[in-house]
C-alpha cells in the first residue's frame, strides 16, 4: 500500500471535497424526491482494513440493502448506496405510497423501486463529480442485493485485493428527520484512479 501511505492530509481533503460535492448533489436529489430536508454528514475518507469496512454499516453480518454500481470512464471505481431495512421500508412508503409489509423479504416491485432510487442518487453523485473533475464518468446499470454487509461490500474491494489488505473509501451518510432514515454512500475508486482524480483537480502528485 505504498501508494496510499504517501497521501498527504491535503490530498485526503481533496478526496473529502470530492465526496462532499457528489453526495451533496445526491442529497439534493433525495430531498427533492422526498420533498423534505435531508441532512448530510461531513464525508469521511479513510484507508480501512477490509475487515473494518463492513463495521461502518453495522458489522459484517448486518442485513442491508445495497445498490451497487460500477463506475466506468476515466476514473473507474465501485459505488454502493447502502440503507438498512427500516429505512428502506420507510423510503418505499414515503416515496411511492407503497403498502409495505413488515414481514421478511421484498417483492420484485419493491426491490426494483429501491434499485431505481439508488440509481438516481448515484447518478447525481457521479454526474456532479464528472462536472467537477471534467473526467468522463458513467455508472453501469445498478444491481441490488439484500444481504450481509460483509458479503456485499467485499465485492467492491476486489480491485484492492491484489494490492494490499485495505481499501480507500469515501463515505457519506445521509440523515432525514433525526435519523429515522439513514443511508450511506461509498465511493471506492480503483487504486489507479486516484492519480487521475488528483491530476484533473490540479493537485500535483510527485
Amino acid at each position: 500500500m505504498s501508494l496510499f501511505s504517501r497521501f498527504e492530509a491535503f490530498e485526503l481533503d481533496v478526496l473529502k471535497e470530492v465526496g462532499n460535492i457528489g453526495a451533496g448533489n445526491a442529497a439534493t436529489a433525495l430531498s427533492r424526491l422526498l420533498d423534505k430536508p435531508v441532512d448530510m454528514a461531513v464525508p469521511k475518507v479513510s484507508l480501512l482494513p477490509f475487515e473494518e469496512v463492513a463495521d461502518r454499516v453495522g458489522g459484517s453480518e448486518q442485513i442491508v440493502i445495497a445498490v451497487f454500481l460500477r463506475v466506468e470512464g476515466e476514473a473507474p471505481g465501485n459505488m454502493f448506496f447502502i440503507i438498512e431495512e427500516q429505512s428502506a421500508r420507510r423510503l418505499l412508503r414515503q416515496l411511492l405510497s407503497m403498502q409495505v409489509e413488515e414481514t421478511d423479504g421484498y417483492t420484485d416491485m419493491e426491490l426494483s423501486a429501491l434499485c431505481e432510487i439508488g440509481n438516481i442518487l448515484a447518478g447525481s453523485y457521479l454526474s456532479s463529480l464528472a462536472d467537477f473533475t471534467q473526467l468522463p464518468m458513467a455508472p453501469s446499470p445498478p444491481a441490488i442485493a439484500v444481504d450481509m454487509a460483509g458479503a456485499v461490500l467485499s465485492y467492491g474491494l476486489m480491485q484492492y485485493g491484489e494490492m494490499g489488505d485495505s481499501a480507500l473509501l469515501i463515505e457519506t451518510t445521509f440523515l432525514e428527520d433525526c435519523q429515522s432514515l439513514e443511508g450511506h454512500f461509498f465511493l471506492i475508486p480503483d487504486p489507479e484512479s486516484f492519480e487521475k482524480i488528483f491530476k484533473a483537480l490540479g493537485v500535483v502528485v510527485e
Binding site: 451497487f68 453501469s140 446499470p141 465485492y155 476486489m158
Partner: peptide, 14 residues
C-alpha cells in the same frame, strides 16, 4: 455472485 450485473466481465465472476 452477489450482484447480477449485465455485461459480466471476467473480474466480476470472481
Amino acid at each position: 455472485q452477489m450482484f447480477a450485473m449485465s455485461g459480466q466481465t471476467d473480474s466480476l465472476r470472481i
